[in-house]
Structure formats: C-alpha cells, structure tokens
C-alpha cells in the first residue's frame, strides 16, 4: 500500500511539473524541435531542471543497497546500444515531432486534451501492442 502511495505521489509531482513547465502544450515542444522556425528553448530548461535532482538521486542510490521501501535498486545501465535503440528512438522522435506529444505529457493531458489527445493515446497503445511483432521483424532483418 505504501509503495502505491509513493508511486502516486511521484506521478502527481511528475504531472504537476509537466503542467507548469508548459510541456503539455504541443506548440512549446514543437517550438523546441523547430530550430529553423520560431525556436522555443523552454524544453532545454525542463530537461536540465529534471536532470539536476535526478543526478543527485543516482549518487545517493550508489551508496545504498536497497530502496527505502526495500527491494533492489535498478541495475547498472546496459552498455550495449543495439539497432533497436537507434531505430526505436528515430521512430519515437518522428512521432514526437509530428504531434508534439510524448508518453508522459500525453498521459498528463488526458483530462483536458480533448479528442485529439485521446486519439493519440489510443494510437500509442496500439503501437505498444504491435511493438514486439515489429521488433521480431527488425531483428530478423538485422541478422539476415
């Protein structure tokens, strides 16, 4: 129960951060990606601001054996890159640019995103369901 409470709290802070930073506004996200247009630097401040407390948290995590509520802390990052990381990130970036939405803000704006926000979320879920099948195809191509 207490795990769920802290998960809820993390999600709430995440949502509040996305709301006040303006990252639920697709125009600001597309404005950041549009370096040849009316460039909007806000996203750099959001990412920079988010990395700061997280960098400290990773240093603290290094000195701990378990999480505060028990259980393992995440394993060290996988050093292998692999084709799926690159292909997936390119596909994700394309979708991110097209609509100005990524998974966090898409969730956060569910209550006020209208039919467009809902259609995006549904399409994203369909994409997630289909991803393992596409991964198998890409792996087959990569090893062929």
């Amino acid at each position: 129960m207490i795990r769920n409470l802290f998960a809820f709290l993390s999600g709430a802070l995440f949502g509040l951060g996305l709301l006040i930073s303006g990252m639920v506004n697709t125009a600001k996200v597309q404005g950041w990606l549009d370096v040849f247009g009316d460039w909007d630097p806000t996203l750099a401040f959001v990412l920079g601001g988010a990395i700061l407390p997280m960098a400290i948290a990773w240093r603290v995590a290094e000195r701990r054996k378990t999480a505060v509520l028990g259980g393992a802390l995440p394993a060290a990052p996988d050093p292998r890159l692999g084709h799926n990381l690159v292909v997936g990130s390119v596909l994700f970036g394309m979708g991110w640019g097209l609509a100005g939405l990524c998974p966090g803000p898409a969730m956060a704006s569910l209550s006020f995103g209208g039919w467009g926000g809902l259609l995006f979320l549904l399409s994203m879920l369909v994409g997630m369901v289909g991803a393992p099948m596409i991964r198998t195809r890409i792996d087959r191509l990569a090893t062929a």
Partner: peptide, 13 residues
C-alpha cells in the same frame, strides 16, 4: 501516425 510511431518507437528503444 504520431501515436503509432511513439508507441512502437518507445518500446523498441
């Protein structure tokens, strides 16, 4: 199109 790309892409990556 954007939703599908984000869904597939983030899971692959």
């Amino acid at each position: 199109a954007a939703g599908l790309l984000v869904g597939v892409g983030t899971r692959l990556a």
